[in-house]
């Protein structure tokens, strides 16, 4: 009798201790390829909240571009231009383009604006070109038009610097020793 009771007590203890295991909702299944797959059923819901950060464009750009233009310049490009540096400090690529250009030729009597660089004797044309040094010729120039436009100038990858120069052509009959202005507004956008 004592042996039977001892056996029954042992079985009861084993059964009681194993309840914690059976209470666990997890079941273990052999996937067949050596991995043990753990599946969950029931339990608590976990909410994952994500916030999409805005894309910040960060640049250094010119707001004013002075230059000289002269018929006496020996090269095809008649402009003396400073280096126009643009820096993309963003983590995304950007494009720089001309949004609009205000032109004032009121001091150059009889002179008109030219949009394509093939100037007549009484015309002036000014453009921008991406280059490492002051260009001698007009190849690759992006000519400025009067008013609203969408003239793409250069594309910069993240953390890249770009360099441009003003280029121009001037007709033989354009008055000298006068001042005219062409004011392009450069705009940056995410590429």
């Amino acid at each position: 009798m004592k042996k039977v009771l001892s056996f029954l007590l042992t079985v009861a203890m084993v059964f009681a201790c194993s309840q914690a295991v059976f209470a666990d909702a997890r079941a273990y299944r052999d996937s067949g390829d050596g991995d043990i797959v753990i599946e969950t059923s029931g339990g608590k819901e976990i909410e994952l909240v994500g916030h999409v950060e805005p894309t910040i464009i960060s640049v250094v750009m010119p707001s004013y571009i002075p230059f000289d233009i002269s018929k006496s310049q020996p090269a095809e490009n008649k402009v003396v231009s400073p280096e126009i540096k643009v820096t993309n400090n963003s983590n995304v690529a950007v494009t720089i383009y001309v949004d609009n250009a205000r032109v004032d030729l009121s001091n150059l009597q009889g002179t008109s604006w030219n949009n394509n660089g093939m100037v007549a004797e009484n015309q002036v044309a000014v453009g921008l070109t991406e280059a490492a040094a002051q260009p001698e010729n007009l190849m690759g120039a992006r000519w400025l038009a009067q008013g609203q436009q969408n003239t793409e100038l250069l594309r910069l990858i993240p953390q890249q610097n770009g360099k441009m120069f003003i280029v121009g052509a001037i007709g033989s009959q354009v008055p000298e020793n006068q001042v005219f202005s062409v004011v392009p507004t450069l705009v940056v956008k995410q590429a």
Binding site: I57, Y64, P82
Partner: peptide, 12 residues
């Protein structure tokens, strides 16, 4: 020209 350079950051 260098005096006229401006830096800025903006939400695109």
């Amino acid at each position: 020209l260098d005096k006229g350079l401006i830096a800025f950051s903006i939400n695109s």
